[in-house]
Amino acid sequence: MITDTIVLICLVIGILFNALGVLGLLRFPDVYTRMHATTKATTFGSVFTALAVIIYGGSLYYGTADPQYITLIIHTIIAALALAFTNAVSSHALARAAHKSGIKPAQAVVDRLGEARR
């Protein structure tokens, strides 16, 4: 009963952050600021949904002692780690490619990289 509540809370937090990521995609002015909202907020949200799966699997393992739930938990942890790592590397690659192809950050107060390139 209590684990059900915790799982629900985790799912709600995760979906809330994913929704905020979508909202940021619509509101922010350029590619860099949009990337802040979409990639990071959605990673945080997805990690929370993964956490809900882990807690649910843990409670099932506590009830049944079936080793398949350990497999489920470990695979979910690996999925969350893989998500975090690929997300960091790919958003860095996207930002670098965008800056190399000449997209200026909109509303920026300073651009040290553009000054260094010149």
């Binding site: 952050f17 905020l20 909202l23 509101r27 922010f28 990071k40 907020a41 300073v110 651009d111």
Partner: peptide, 24 residues
Amino acid sequence: EVTKANLDVAYRVITGNIRPGIIR
């Protein structure tokens, strides 16, 4: 650190209050 920054960005998504820039 990630949790604190997430709440900060969530606030900025809602209010649209940003001041972006690339720093060294």
